[in-house]
C-alpha cells in the first residue's frame, strides 16, 4: 500500500487552512482539511486517510470518524469518476426532479446510490442544495447544473464521457 501523504501543493494548502485559526484550535480546520484530503486521495475518505488527517491535526481518529460520518459531502466509499447528485426536495420535486432522477437511472442503468459497472458514474439523490429557483438541478463536481431537462442530461453524460476519454 502506498504511503498516504500530501504532496507539496497539498501540503501548502493544508498549512494555509490550519493557519486560519488561533493557536491550539487546529481542530477547527477539520472540515476543510477533510475536503482537501478527499480531493487529494481519490475522491473518498478511507480509514487510512482519516487516520492521517487525525495525525496531522493532532486529534483522535474517532474525532475524525465522527465528523466524516456526520456530513453528507464526505464519501466513505469509492465513487464513480462523475458523481451526479440530484436534488429531490420539495421545490425541485415541484419542477419535476422525480422524472429527471428516473431518467438518469434509466439512461445509466443504475439506481440512486449505485455506481455504473465501468466506475464512470455514481447517481445519488440529495436534499436541498439551494438552487430551488433553477430546478430541477444537480451538483456535478464543484458546480451546479441547473434547469435540467432530458436533453440536458444527455448532453451532460456525453460531456463526461468525452472528458474521461480525453483524460485517459
Amino acid at each position: 500500500m502506498t504511503m498516504i501523504r500530501f504532496n507539496d501543493k497539498q501540503e501548502a494548502e493544508f498549512q494555509r487552512l490550519v493557519s486560519r485559526y488561533p493557536e491550539g484550535k487546529q481542530k477547527s480546520a477539520l472540515l476543510p482539511v477533510l475536503h482537501l484530503a478527499q480531493d487529494s486521495f481519490g475522491g473518498w475518505l478511507s480509514s487510512e486517510v482519516m487516520d492521517y488527517v487525525a495525525d496531522r491535526l493532532s486529534i483522535k481518529p474517532i474525532e475524525v470518524y465522527e465528523v466524516a460520518t456526520f456530513y453528507t459531502m464526505y464519501n466513505l466509499k469509492p465513487i464513480g469518476k462523475y458523481l451526479f447528485e440530484v436534488c429531490q426536495t420539495g421545490p425541485c420535486m415541484l419542477r419535476g426532479s422525480d422524472d429527471i432522477i428516473a431518467y438518469i437511472g434509466e439512461k445509466l442503468g443504475i439506481k440512486p446510490g449505485q455506481t455504473t459497472e465501468d466506475g464512470m458514474f455514481t447517481l445519488k439523490t440529495v436534499e436541498c442544495l439551494g438552487a430551488c429557483g433553477y430546478a430541477p438541478m444537480m451538483q456535478l463536481g464543484k458546480f451546479y447544473r441547473e434547469h435540467l431537462t432530458k436533453e440536458k442530461v444527455d448532453q451532460i453524460i456525453e460531456e463526461c464521457r468525452r472528458n474521461a476519454a480525453a483524460n485517459n
Binding site: 486560519r20 477547527s28 472540515l31 476543510p32 477533510l34 475536503h35 456526520f70 456530513y71 453528507t72 459531502m73 464526505y74 436534499e127 436541498c128
Partner: peptide
C-alpha cells in the same frame, strides 16, 4: 476567513 461546511442543514 471563509470556512466551508460539508453538507448539513
Amino acid at each position: 476567513y471563509v470556512q466551508r461546511g460539508a453538507g448539513a442543514y
